[in-house]
Nucleic acid binder design. Structure first.
Lengths: 193, 193
DNA sequence: ACAGATTTCCTAGCAGTGCTAGAATCAGCG
DNA sequence: CGCTGATTCTAGCACTGCTAGGAAATCTGT
């Protein structure tokens, strides 16, 4: 790293500072506290500086979301590789995923609730998105049997996402989280493998 | 109906007008178009009139969400009672649920994405929420086997919700919707019943 | 080291938001 | 009709994301 002129390096450094400040502010006080004025004050620059790096506030949130996807993929991967059997790996992955959503609500919000512009799914999504999906796929595939592993992974992912969202909003009491996860794993790890 | 004085009846009528206007505007142009000024212009009153009926914009969205929960429950019920077997009922319910979310995105947003204040889950939620959950429960229970029907229903609901959200945001291509639903039903309707 | 060109940065402001105080208007009643 | 009280509107506040234009700092060539 450290390519380009000194100014270019300083710019890149400040861009990271913006993303880090936005993330920390969101995690500390929620995204509603992340205003451009507040964020500018936090990095000790004026508002227009933000716009010299990002097209708008959404772009900053997207950058935070990208960080989040990378970390989520890493945690899911760690959980998967640490587990032994196929079912155990699926359970570990599911627990890691929902834990991530629960412990980093602001980050998860940036990834799924707020930023809509990120298009991925099929083949042409950003790398960090394919990475996360690939981790889930690696855990689901051994248990897919005759079913399409990709579509099954999408379905499993949707279940995890739904659980995370409903529990986070308080619509499902968090107390029964483990039971729900257990039932879900039971349904997705039946028979095969 | 038609209780109280004439003025009270007119007030109630105007309150319904507000909710209807907010909903129609949201469904036509999205919730970002529903501003208090725009909504006031739509009902041909000034902004403070809105606040004489509702505590704030969130309260109006909550009222719209309440309507949505009622209609969702009705559609799920219709799908469930029209189906014959237990697995078929579950599939019909799942299709009805995701269809609702797809065809009424603004309404579904009001119900789940925006309004956070609605607490329900366990026992003390509003009636219209328990109604919808009850419909899902009625479809899931026959297939629960030894598992807790309530918790299993919550899990199934979360899966449907996750599918609806990810497909709506374009993160999962809508083209494979039916396949995902099929896989989900297959996992939740195994063996038992 | 200094003048000029260039890039970087900030001040000030715009149009819009949700929401509200106080003035104006309207309804009901003696 | 005139008064009282409820109802409604005008005007404004504090805030948002975002941006034009001038000020300030930096780099360049002599």
């Amino acid at each position: 790293m450290a390519t380009g002129t000194r100014r270019e390096r300083e710019r890149a450094q400040r861009e990271e500072l913006i993303v880090r400040a936005a993330r920390e502010l969101a995690e500390a006080e929620g995204w509603e506290a992340v205003t451009t004025r507040r964020l500018a004050a936090e990095i000790e620059y004026s508002q227009p500086v933000l716009y010299s790096h990002f097209k708008g506030k959404d772009a900053i949130m997207t950058a935070v979301a990208a960080e989040g996807f990378g970390e989520l993929a890493k945690e899911v991967r760690a959980a998967r590789t640490a587990a032994t059997g196929a079912s155990e790996a699926l359970a570990a992955v599911a627990a890691a995923y929902t834990d991530f959503a629960r412990k980093r609500p602001a980050l998860y919000d940036a990834m799924f609730t707020h930023t809509v512009e990120v298009q991925f799914a099929s083949e042409d999504g950003p790398a960090y998105l394919r990475e996360g999906f690939g981790e889930l796929l690696a855990a689901v595939e051994p248990l897919a049997g005759d079913d399409d592993p990709g579509v099954l992974t999408e379905t499993f992912w949707a279940s995890l996402h739904g659980l995370a969202m409903l529990e986070r909003s308080g619509r499902l009491p968090a107390a029964w989280h483990d039971e729900r996860l257990g039932l879900l794993i039971g349904r997705f790890a039946v028979g095969k493998g």
